[in-house]
Write a protein that binds this DNA or RNA. Structure first.
Length: 250
DNA sequence: ATGTCATCTTAGAGATGA
């Protein structure tokens, strides 16, 4: 079984990249983030034509998450208590419980978005109480947190920035403490499996990136392979994120 | 540290967020 997560930075704008990528990569389940379209405007038809059932949550201009599944969509959930933005989609996809998350960016530690980000992570953790860590389950998506200093190109460049602060990392650690494992992925290039590179300043070509797109899995899942698909970040009008692809056995 | 991109407003370029 092949699963993947990808922040596409607009599913409409990325459709010319997404559809061939699905054709080539043939994942069974895909978590998408930053779809940036209302649920009613989601491009269901071309995805259904490829054999995917779709669960989409959308606000319109910002945010938006989805799950594409060839193994069915059961028990769909798109709300997170206390939080109205479209940042979570969860469903049972055959034998695997899947959650697609787009954690708030936080903007800056002094910004009101920063405590909102920490609250959101706490709500995600609280949601786990209703789930079973012995069952096959993944939470994957754009967490907007680099779990360790090695997950950014130069920690010194992040002084005073979000994504690397102790409270944000504690929010991720709380998920791991519940019983999830941060799956290590093979990097597409270099030593670090970065998943995001800013569009500006040639950051991608200099491999000045961040590992902020994570696949967190319960131990019931056996991992055969996991890699960052750096090729998808190249070429014409890419997303600023690369997909993470994981081959698993249950 | 920022050389880009996508979207919305509202009909052209500016604001916003990442």
């Amino acid at each position: 079984m092949r699963i993947a997560t990808w922040n596409v930075n607009s599913v409409s704008a990325r459709l010319p990249r997404l559809l061939p990528w699905l054709e080539d990569t043939t994942p069974d389940v895909v978590a998408l983030q930053e779809t940036k379209c209302a649920a009613g405007a989601f491009p269901h038809l071309p995805l259904q034509a490829m054999g995917y059932e779709v669960l989409a949550a959308g606000d319109g201009r910002w945010n938006g998450v989805a799950i594409l599944s060839k193994l069915g969509i059961a028990e769909p959930v798109t709300d997170l208590p206390g939080h109205s933005e479209a940042r979570l989609a969860a469903a049972q996809c055959g034998p695997l419980h899947v959650t697609s998350v787009y954690v708030p960016n936080g903007r800056a530690p002094a910004d009101a978005q920063y405590p909102y980000k920490l609250d959101w992570l706490a709500a995600l953790r609280a949601r786990l109480e209703a789930l079973d860590p012995t069952q096959p389950m993944v939470i994957m998506g754009d967490f907007n947190v680099a779990p360790t200093d090695d997950d950014v190109w130069d920690i010194r460049a992040f002084a005073g920035s979000t994504h690397v602060t102790a409270p944000e990392r504690a929010g991720i650690q709380a998920l791991l403490d519940w019983g999830l494992i941060d799956l290590p992925a093979r990097p597409g290039k270099g030593d670090h499996p970065f998943t995001y590179w800013d569009y500006r300043a040639g950051m991608f070509h200099k491999d000045l990136g961040m590992r902020i797109d994570l696949v967190l899995a319960t131990p019931a899942i056996r991992v055969r392979d996991a890699y960052v698909d750096r090729e998808a970040r190249k070429g014409k009008l890419p997303s600023d994120h690369a997909p993470v692809v994981v081959d698993i056995d249950l």
